[in-house]
Design a protein around this nucleic acid. Structure first.
Lengths: 156, 156
DNA sequence: CGCTTGAGGTTTTAATTTGCAACCGATATA
DNA sequence: TATATCGGTTGCAAATTAAAACCTCAAGCG
């Protein structure tokens, strides 16, 4: 955290998010939250990280509005950590990460968990980026365009 | 790097990729590579990071097969760094990160770079996850399914 | 030739982060 | 009253990160 820049100013659309979730653990916490985990102890058991680190990461996620605490759920006197809308917005990113991992980090025959459609248990499709006209586009079909204001400098 | 586990074993499909690109800089380097940067000095100038860190990150990206060095391009005696197929596979992830950043890290009226279709200059669509039947699905419509082999333990 | 310059790093060193372990406070539980 | 469990915080040693200085090689040039 707090890598080089004080806050969000002058960071591009890729770098700003990284300031919030750009470490190993944060995304795993978010993933566990998507899987329904809510309690401090649940995250700790699932991830096996030190409590002070989990504490710091949760604080950071709260500070960035990615998770929030809710008073209780089952009457216990403790609070729980749940994703905000901003946090739930990370779903496509997690899917992209998972699909990339499946593509390149597993042997072809190696067993791994599958993301499936709840309705029928079938695996989901691949994430696809489409242009306005519906074409599936890759990196080579796209470019980044600076906003009219600040033409020309880099990594705005 | 080398966070807690020696190598890839027993890491889920989300954690394994994070072992390779789970730090602030690596993804930014990859993004710059998508933007056409190839030389050590180009990356350093663009990202403004210390040379030893860039060196370490590039080495790591090479070790993970995300980038590779090619002997030259313009006759200079130095090597260049280009994305492998595995590295190019990160495109959807970068798009997901960018779109999330645009959604939640910019004021509605704040200018930011746009990812556009090269053919016509129009912005690309949003990334969408679809089920086999074509339905757009969100987190709440999906679940992770363990492979038949190892039913029941967590985070396999 | 001898000097400088720039690319592409490595080494040194200091600051930051990490993670283990111990502790703490509050609530249950025996 | 003991004791255990949850949800943390605090110390402290070890590892990681980063800034700056240094090194090497090749080219340019006077």
């Amino acid at each position: 955290m707090a890598k080089r820049v004080s806050h969000s100013e002058s960071l591009c659309g890729v770098a700003r998010p990284l300031d919030a979730i750009g470490d190993w653990w944060s995304l795993l916490i978010v993933r566990d939250a998507f899987d329904g985990l809510r309690r401090f102890g649940e995250f700790q058991k699932s991830l096996g990280l030190a409590k002070n680190i989990l504490s710091a990461r949760l604080r950071n996620l709260l500070a960035h509005g990615i998770m929030e605490t809710v008073p209780a759920a089952d009457g216990s006197p403790y609070q729980e950590y749940v994703l905000t809308e901003k946090g739930r917005g990370l779903f496509p990113l997690l899917v992209a990460l998972r699909q990339w991992g499946e593509d390149f980090f597993f042997d072809p025959d190696e067993a791994h968990v599958l993301l499936v459609d709840k309705k029928n248990g079938l695996p989901v499709r691949r994430l696809e980026l489409r242009a306005q006209d519906g074409r599936v586009v890759g990196a080579e079909d796209t470019m980044v365009q600076l906003p009219p204001a600040l033409r020309s400098n880099a990594t705005a």
